[in-house]
């Protein structure tokens, strides 16, 4: 978290159907000095959209809601040409959903419940690509590509399965190797790819078109 960069004109649109989540996350965000507006559904957000100031703003949206779901809301914004970076919130372990969201153009994903660091890092990254959101995910950097090329074929298999949302145990079964070996591969992959966490690894996978 970079305290020095915090200014007061950063806005977060929080869309979640759960009142306690809206209240809790809003408390966190305002403590972290983001101007936060909450919406209880995708429909409510869409109807308020014409009056919203989108510059320096990020939408933080739950993927699993009644009515318009997070992914649909995101697609709707894409279709309408609304230029707003999107971060989706998923349940822990729902990597396939996160991958789909990011393929749809989401900047990032957060697994609920999240820590202060996780949410602020994600928001800062999203805001850095705003306002003219030219998704940094569209093109993989030569550096990322060379990292990826340094993976062995087996590591690449494991990488694919991780991004597919499988646990070590499941990957072990699918690839017919031991869970310990999977864990070794996983750590090798993280270090070769220079990914700090799973979310970053998934982001890289989407950039590299892995998991299509």
């Amino acid at each position: 978290m970079t305290d020095s960069s915090i200014t007061n004109d950063r806005a977060v649109f929080l869309v979640d159907d759960d009142v306690a989540v809206r209240r809790g996350v809003a408390a966190l965000l305002s403590a972290a000095e983001y101007e936060t507006t909450t919406f209880k559904s995708g429909e409510e957000f869409l109807s308020a959209l014409p009056d919203l100031e989108l510059a320096n703003a990020v939408m933080l949206v739950d993927v699993c809601m009644p009515g318009i779901q997070g992914l649909e809301l995101q697609e709707q914004l894409n279709k309408d040409g609304v230029d707003l970076p999107v971060i989706v919130m998923t349940a822990h372990g729902d990597i396939p959903m996160a991958v789909r969201a990011m393929q749809n153009g989401a900047i990032d994903f957060l697994q609920k419940p999240f820590t202060v660091d996780e949410v602020t890092t994600a928001l800062e990254r999203a805001l850095s690509v705003s306002p003219r959101r030219q998704s940094p995910l569209k093109d993989a950097s030569p550096e990322l590509r060379s990292h990826h090329q340094s993976l062995t074929p087996r590591e690449n298999d494991v990488f694919r399965e991780i991004v597919g949302g499988n646990t070590n145990k499941e990957i072990a079964r699918i690839l017919a190797i031991s869970p310990r070996t999977v864990e070794v591969h996983r750590q090798k992959i993280m270090s070769k790819m220079e990914a700090e966490n799973l979310a970053e690894l998934v982001r890289m996978a989407v950039t590299l078109n892995i998991g299509e």
């Binding site: 759960d18 989540v21 209240r23 408390a27 403590a31 609920k112 419940p113 999240f114 820590t115």
Partner: peptide, 18 residues
Amino acid sequence: LNQPLTAAASLIGAVSIR
């Protein structure tokens, strides 16, 4: 259950920032 847990973690996060 994940929703109240998220709310609780966020509230604690807010407190720790403050």
